[in-house]
Simulated assay, not measured.
Amino acid sequence: MPIAQINIARFVRAKDDPANAAFFEALDHVNAMAEASDGFIWRLIGDGNDATDLEVLPGDPDLIVNLSVWRDVPALEAFAYRQADHRAVLARRREWFAPIEPAFALWSVDEGHVPTIGEGMAKLDELACNGPGKAVFTFGWYRQNRSVFEGD
């Protein structure tokens, strides 16, 4: 069964601050690497080639979202942690973004389902309130409980 992922981030400085230039310079390339990855299905795109222009929360222009669908958790995990260009951006996230908890959530979706920002934000809220479980989870929870998904 496919999985959706959301991750959110709030810039430490205003989104258009020159200190964030390296993040934006890497974004198109990293997104292209995601799209070329085995198991990639879909990602949210706004007016540009990314979703950084989309309003996640009203009045919070420095909060950005990444929302995508993948064939399964191992495919997403391979991209997230083993694709060198993504890892390089991930390693620098503290330069650009303030800590948010939780900032990342995974959940199963039906074939062909396209998640919305609202759905993803609700999953983050569910994770914050109830912790991980089969309905919404993290990579770590999945690794420890992958048998829960066998047969899905």
Rank of each mutant, 00 (worst) to 15 (best):
P2L: 14
W96G: 00
G59D: 05
F79C: 04
A19Q: 06
A4F: 11
G133D: 13
P102A: 08
A80G: 15
D16W: 05
E126M: 13
V65P: 02
N31F: 04
L124W: 01
A80C: 09
V12Y: 00
A84T: 03
W42M: 08
Q144W: 08
P58G: 10
I6L: 13
P132D: 07
A98T: 02
A9Y: 02
N7V: 13
F149P: 09
W107E: 07
V12L: 13
W70T: 09
A21M: 03
R146A: 10
A128P: 05
A14H: 08
N31C: 05
V114L: 15
F149D: 09
L44E: 04
E126Y: 10
V56E: 04
P115Q: 09
Q144M: 11
V73S: 12
I100Y: 01
H29E: 11
G112V: 11
G46N: 06
D17M: 04
V12K: 11
Y81W: 15
A22F: 02
A98Q: 12
R71A: 10
A26N: 10
R13S: 05
D72N: 14
A26D: 11
L127A: 05
N20Y: 01
D152S: 15
A78Q: 15
E77L: 15
F11H: 06
T52H: 07
G131Y: 08
N145D: 10
D72M: 07
F139W: 14
M1E: 03
R143F: 12
D72A: 01
L44V: 02
A105W: 08
I41C: 10
I100N: 03
V73I: 09
A135K: 08
I117T: 03
G120I: 12
V114T: 15
W141T: 12
D85E: 13
K134M: 14
Y81Q: 07
V148F: 11
A26W: 00
D62W: 00
F24I: 08
L106W: 15
K134Q: 14
L57T: 14
L106R: 10
R43L: 00
V89R: 04
E126D: 07
A34Q: 09
V65Q: 10
A80L: 07
P99H: 04
L63Q: 00
E150R: 05
R82E: 06
F24T: 10
S37N: 06
R94Q: 03
D152A: 13
D17N: 04
E77A: 14
